[in-house]
Design a protein around this nucleic acid. Structure first.
Lengths: 150, 150
DNA sequence: CCTTTAAGTTGTACTATACAACCGAACCCG
DNA sequence: CGGGTTCGGTTGTATAGTACAACTTAAAGG
């Protein structure tokens, strides 16, 4: 019964539609933190601090892009730079208390929005959907290893 | 067993990760057509032509944004404007043969990329994943109806 | 008719991004 | 150990996508 090509077509179309709206949706949901800023802060929290280069590598961004993003977040008082003990060239980026607060606030907003949006899904469906997304993104990550540029 | 909050968290994180990469991925996959251009052309094909205003409404874009996007696509020879028979203010946008060709080419590339990426998924999983994405985006669409701006 | 509304364009500004050139520190080989 | 090489980061420059506001022209409607 499942038509493989139709499914692929749908997946492609719906993911594209989602991607197109994501930035604007994030801006609406939390104007004080862009999707990218949010992501970088969340990574810093999760990792307990890391270098700009690590962020660039992880998110496939140019180091200049990360440098400017971080400069903005520092200006806002959300991150601070600490000397890296083992390499004087590097700086380790850390969330400030203010950054952690803002991140927590935004994360809560997002959580609520998702909870609302997915409120009528049953647990098993949510679980499967989460699993599929993980699997999809993991395959993406694999492909990226082989990609040339960026 | 499925933990609802954990699933929500994962869905949120993975969708965000995907959104962040989508544009760059599209640029890599088909440099000649950005994600937005692709989307607009695909909509024109699907609809068999429509007005700029319709595109703006459908994709929640400002009309100036659409105007410039279309201007670009026209410059590339991918779309043409025809007078709207019933309203002299409006123009109906149509794909040109060249636009249709390019779109078909890009769509084929995308299809291949997705087929490759999802090659090891079995049919039932693909079908369910497609269904979940449809359902997710549909709820998004509903929320957007209530949103104020844009 | 004359006001209001709708479709589109243009001016302006901002953000995210990339690439290239650069700086300075650290690393490593001979 | 010393000088070339690599690495982390910043800055200059350019581009794309987007929004908002002001404007133009045309339709619609009392």
């Amino acid at each position: 019964m499942p038509d493989r090509d139709a499914s692929l077509e749908t997946i492609q179309r719906e993911l594209t539609a989602f991607a197109r709206r994501a930035r604007a949706a994030a801006a609406r949901l939390h104007p004080e933190l862009s999707l990218v800023s949010y992501t970088l802060l969340a990574h810093l929290e999760e990792q307990g601090g890391c270098r700009a280069t690590d962020l660039a590598a992880h998110y496939l961004l140019d180091k200049s892009t990360v440098s400017r993003q971080i400069a903005g977040l520092e200006r806002l008082g959300f991150v601070e730079r600490r000397p890296a003990p083992e390499d004087q060239r590097a700086q380790v980026l850390h969330l400030t208390a203010r950054g952690a607060d803002t991140l927590a606030q935004v994360a809560a907003n997002r959580r609520d929005a998702f909870r609302e949006r997915l409120g009528d899904w049953d647990d098993a469906d949510l679980d499967r959907f989460a699993g599929y997304l993980l699997r999809y993104n993991a395959s993406n990550r694999t492909l990226i290893q082989h990609a040339p540029q960026n």
